[in-house]
Design a protein around this nucleic acid. Sequence first.
DNA 1: GTTCGCAGCGTTTTT
DNA 2: CGCTGCGAAC
Length: 775
Amino acid sequence: MDYLKGLNEAQYEAVTTLEGPLMVLAGAGSGKTRVLTMRIAHLITNLVDPFHILALTFTNKAAKEMKERIAKVVGQSEARSLWMGTFHSVFARILRSEAHYLGYPSNFTIYDSQDSLNVLKKVLKDSNIDADLYKPKKVMARISNYKNNLITVKAYLANPELIENDERANMKHMGLIYQKYVDACYRNGAMDFDDLLLRTNELLTRFPEVLAKYQDRFRYILVDEYQDTNHSQYLIVKALASKFENICVVGDDAQSIYSFRGANIHNILNFKKDYPDAVTVSLEQNYRSTQNIVNAANVVISKNVQQFKKNVFSDNEEGDKIKVYRSLSDADEANFVASNIWELHNTQQRKFTDFAILYRTNSQTRAFEDSLRRKNIPYRVYGGLSFYQRKEVKDLVAYLRLLINENDGEALSRIINYPARGIGETTQNKLIVFADSQNVSITTVLGNLGMYAPLLGLNNGILTKLADFWAMIKAFQVMLKTENAYTVAMEVAKRTGLIKFLKDDQTPEGISRLENVQELMNSMQGFIEEQQQLEDGDPSLSNFLENIALSADTQNDKKEEGDQVSLMTIHLSKGLEFPVVHLVGLEENLFPSFMSSSTREELEEERRLFYVALTRAEKQAFFSYAVSRFQWGKITDAEPSRFLSEMDTAHLEFINPAIESRFVNHSGLKSSIFDDEPASPRFFKKKEEKKTIQRNEPLPTAQNLKPVATARIINPSGASSEDIEVGDQVRHDRFGVGEVLFLDGTDPQNIKAKVKFQHEGEKNLILKFAKLTKI
DNA sequence: GTTCGCAGCGTTTTT
DNA sequence: CGCTGCGAAC
């Protein structure tokens, strides 16, 4: 049991207290993941069958990481039968096998937020409701809120208080809309994210035999990030654990940052009330960060009223003070960060992977991408628009979804006329109205066109098109019975004309779209191969679809992780650690967000977010903020974040005193430094860029071209080309092998390469998109 | 039925 | 600014 060695007293207790309810309050950096991992290992060593263990996490990333670490301790085969995953994926799996209880098909589709929103928009349109009062996103948030609190349509309609509440918000039709939305999803054979939890609750409450079955299976339950569970998740855990009560929850109330999606901090605050016999273990020693960082973070989080008292401390070196940089603009800030990374990379021999840039909102990425790219610093952006949310990818996926679940009206409407095949809006509307009037689904109408044709009022040309379309879908379905998912998907991409449609668009964006589709095919192939290697793998199309529905992963998770700077939102950074952290955009109305500055609760959550961000840092932290920022298409003045003033200056060091004093004396003059400039934002931007280039880099000369052209080019999706130089032999996905004749361009985004291919002749390629491999 | 262009809008965080 | 949705013209 060497794995028990090296645990401190509290960790040891948390790992070895196997029976009964246990709450582990794990301060930031206190070895939480280690404890969870060791605990599972210890369970298995103590002859608990992994089959009886359920471990729930919040992100796929966390689940994956933990699985790997457990496999290292107990071995691959032992780890396999353990159930570990996100709430959503674990319960989606259970729902699939028990769907018949709920009147759902087991092949139900899982809708992501975008799908749900589309369905809701249709509902709103149908209902002839004032679109200004009922903004889809707002309505969706309310519905989501109901669901997460287990308020079904029925419960809603029976609750005058809720109805009154919505009436007061000027939304008296919420009940009706809610009903219609739920009906639509049901008709489509689909569940949204919230349904996965709500329906699980329904399953466990309405069918005691099902509950008993899973209670018996999951005798040992572990929940990571318990502070972020919502009510729905809380009830599921509670129900499952109520037989054996071997439940271990791990969390840190100071790191609860998901209340916007229903997380209820009281779940962890009240754990003792739910399980009076619970053992509580506090992990307070932070092994991750320097004393200075830990202490600085403690000062800020102590401003929160709502929290357990903890004493997180570090025995590490005291460490550097946190350096605070005040910048003139977002571009200036990005430039500072990039220069700083470059410098530390050179002077302290830090790898690029040692650095993280953390921000509040995804829209802040761009400026940093620009500066990093200019300095040829490799980076990777996490999060943002997921690969699977791109339109071209979703379109192909919609076809595949339709093959699995032909009732999926959302998928159908997405592709019935894409690529255009003459089935326009008018025809679709007729179909919908007719199907409604006959009280059947559109699928039924399409499947029995012969019978319905005379009643539809459509001309023969259109009817033929509809028949052809449906015959094609049916043919794919037949094919799916004998061929593997990849082959069918390829056939779909070709036969529907999707590939041709994309190929016709030779703009860089068009090429990139085609490549994304190819990438989808690749990832599918990868998935199939991976599943085939697994003993209990499932290479089916439906399994593939489920996996992508529940993963917000960007495309290149499997791709090589080179030496790259990480860029991500603070939310995404939870659970991670980096030697050097740049926390940027520390401005009022940005962080804390203007959306979350009205109530104390909201502000406390922002403060916890700040705490999370700072405690990601191991050795060094840098803060920065800009006095003016280019956003919403114009320049906005900004004040430093209140979190900065909440800190103890003993932990800080202001690193640009010159600029500081210049500004301190003239409050509110920030914009006046640009008085000699035209007011147009465009000019402003230009000037900024020019300035930064001059200040930090020599002008592009022939000498400087080479490093740019030979650098790793990172495109926005994160894929990278190898270092390409003139004379290199390269391989291209489609054109095969060739020689690079010529490189052209200084803008790393737009370097063109002339390549002579053995068979295809000379081509001009944009390096960023071409994905050339050096051979 | 399709395409293009413009206006208006929102803009936090994720399974 | 960038996206969506809508209306007008082909």
